[in-house]
């Protein structure tokens, strides 16, 4: 049941992104922000609905792993950009 729900929700999110990108006349920046946000939401959704983040005995460890991975990626990428652009 959750799979069907997740599938439908994923479809909705994908088409929403498609609609924003093709059928609206928002500025480039706004489009990028909106479809980026939709992508992140969908990625999180899929982790819960299809990739069994919350199932099994290791759910706690898996959640910590994902969060820590995101933390490292954000620090490395966003941190580098921020530092190398001299804090602008």
């Amino acid at each position: 049941m959750t799979q069907v729900f997740g599938f439908v929700l994923s479809l909705v999110l994908t088409f929403a992104a498609l609609f924003v990108a093709l059928k609206t006349s928002l500025s480039f920046n706004a489009i990028i922000w909106i479809i980026g946000t939709l992508a992140v939401i969908q990625a999180a959704l899929q982790l819960f609905m299809f990739m069994h983040l919350k199932d099994g005995e290791d759910s706690k460890a898996q959640t910590i792993n994902i969060l820590y991975g995101i933390f490292i990626a954000v620090v490395t990428v966003a941190g580098s950009i921020w530092v190398m652009s001299f804090g602008m």
Binding site: F71, I72, V75, G79, W82, V83, F86, G87, M88
Partner: peptide, 18 residues
């Protein structure tokens, strides 16, 4: 430990905020 690396090159002059 993941959040301190710039202290090795403060003298790059990345600005007061950084």
């Amino acid at each position: 430990s993941m959040l301190v690396w710039v202290h090795h090159f403060f003298t790059m002059g990345a600005g007061p905020a950084v």
